[in-house]
């Protein structure tokens, strides 16, 4: 399965990259904002996406709807510091499959991805 990471912070992108220990996941690209993410998505056709919500240009929520429209079976893990319930519900409703709060430990991340691919 192919993984795409969307986060405007380089550190977070690399953290997710580093800590993902799933052999069946192959990182196909990282994007720093929604517009970049859509472009990359069309090119690489990933199966799993980790998605930040607060990003410049296009925000995560909008990006999720567009990705789901492009590929309904894509699995999206929201990785965000926005911890309020309305945002989480909004993201899930738009088609996200999981929600991970920043900051997170490697274990939390692995569990969230495992849950996502179950």
């Amino acid at each position: 399965m192919k993984l795409m990471i969307v986060d405007d912070s380089n550190i977070m992108r690399r953290r997710i990259e580093r800590s993902q220990q799933f052999e069946e996941l192959e990182l196909v690209g990282t994007a720093g904002n929604g517009v970049e993410a859509i472009e990359l998505f069309k090119r690489t056709d990933p199966d799993v996406v980790t998605m930040d919500l607060t990003m410049p240009r296009m925000d995560g929520i909008e990006c999720i709807s567009l990705l789901v429209a492009l590929k309904p079976e894509v699995r999206i893990l929201v990785v965000s510091a926005l911890a309020d319930k309305a945002t989480a519900v909004e993201a899930m409703e738009k088609g996200a499959n999981g929600f991970l709060n920043k900051p997170f430990t490697d274990r939390q991340l692995n569990e969230a991805i495992a849950e996502l691919m179950r």
Binding site: E90, E93, N97
Partner: peptide, 19 residues
Amino acid sequence: KYIKLLWGERAHENLMKSI
């Protein structure tokens, strides 16, 4: 929206509880 999500089995109970 939340109630609709409850019926989908996409999200497990703990995640649903947390949001």
